[in-house]
């Protein structure tokens, strides 16, 4: 799927789909950190609509923050506008967040746990965000299709 770079940055809809029993919420944001606030709101609304626990909502929001920050900060070689599509779906007892972007190929499923022996002076934070994602989500799926990264975060309700 090619992401359309133009058009409104907010496409929010909630509908039952025939191919699954889940409800879909989706949102298209631009590639700036400021745009990420809209995703936090989307996840909160999705959680309220489906009685999802605060803990699950917060953990999903934290992981989306890590993934989107990574993509927006390091994923693009140009300074142009890019669109990122975030879709939330409820399937059984799982909340699934799918992120589709046309950034450089990046598979976040590999992460190294931080080294607890490092003190305050030498400690670096790089890699911790992906470690959070892989530790807090039940499952992370990644594929590269038609020039886009497709990432799916699975969180138990």
């Amino acid at each position: 799927m090619q992401i359309e770079p133009s058009g409104p940055t907010l496409l929010l809809h909630s509908k039952m789909t025939s191919e699954s029993s889940g409800t879909h919420f989706s949102l298209r944001i631009g590639n700036t950190i400021n745009e990420m606030k809209k995703v936090v709101d989307l996840v909160e609304r999705f959680g309220s609509a489906h009685n999802v626990s605060k803990k699950a909502i917060n953990e999903l929001n934290l992981c989306l923050d890590e993934i989107l920050n990574n993509t927006i900060s390091y994923g693009y070689d140009d300074k142009g506008f890019h669109s990122i599509l975030v879709t939330l779906t409820l399937v059984g007892d799982l909340m699934i967040a799918e992120i589709v972007d046309d950034a450089k190929p990046f598979d976040p499923r590999q992460s190294t746990p931080p080294d607890p022996s490092q003190g305050l002076g030498e400690r670096r934070v790089g890699g911790v965000g992906l470690h959070f994602v892989n530790a807090l989500m039940e499952k992370v799926d990644y594929s590269r299709k038609n020039g886009c990264n497709h990432l799916k975060l699975h969180k138990k309700l």
């Binding site: 953990e59 923050d65 890590e66 911790v128 965000g129």
Partner: peptide, 20 residues
């Protein structure tokens, strides 16, 4: 505090170092 992301931990580390 609801949660703190790695960006927040980075800010906390920098403040901790400066305090030290």
């Amino acid at each position: 505090l609801v949660y703190i992301s790695s960006a927040g931990f980075r800010a906390l580390l920098l403040a901790g170092r400066l305090a030290e």
